[in-house]
Design a protein around this nucleic acid. Sequence first.
DNA 1: CGCCAGGGCCATA
DNA 2: TATGGCCATGGC
Length: 221
Amino acid sequence: MTADPEIAREILDALWGYYGDLNWWPAQTPYEVIIGAILTQNTAWRNVELALDRLKGRMTPEAILSLSIPELEDAIRPAGFYHQKAQYLLTVTRWFAAHQKRSPEGSERSLKKLREELLSLRGVGPETADTILLYALEKPSFVVDAYTKRLTLRFPLLPAASYTALKEYFEKSLPREVSLYNQFHALIVVHAKTHCKVKPLCRGCPLERRCEKRLTPQSPK
DNA sequence: CGCCAGGGCCATA
DNA sequence: TATGGCCATGGC
């Protein structure tokens, strides 16, 4: 299926014009991005914030690796799934520490190679990998999440909501730029939280022109 | 109260 | 390859 690339640009332009610049991920350092990316798996960001607060002052690989399992689990408890996530965090943290040591200035491993490495880690699936690549490592890897799927499901002209189909569609339709991917994903998150909710609030929606306003059931993961 | 959130893993067919 | 059960807390 070859969806019209123009639709992606229209959506981006409309959201950009409406919400303005949102170049962002709620974190101070690349490692904090990684922690957030794990903790937010199928979890409301509100709960992630509670966990991040409890980790304040300890958000470095060394500090996290020095904690006992019970200590780590207790700290991240508000984010849910804390047994798994504690293990996932340790796994990714070890990878990140090794990655930093290996490439002090980013001695260019290819994006593809990096993504494969991340996906091989237990606890890192497509969305977490792309989030880490884009927001922590600043590589041009488009992030697809539940918000992206929900929004695009309301546009019948776009690819069916499989992760790779959507990722490839957006990457083929837009210039391969970190700041643009960053911006677009941020806009989608904000838009999905304000207008394009499970029960959509279409009044004043900047995407009215193209949207079919289909009442989509909560996207099947 | 019940529902569900910025996923991923694993077992099964 | 594609479904379905499972993991857990806190806001609404």
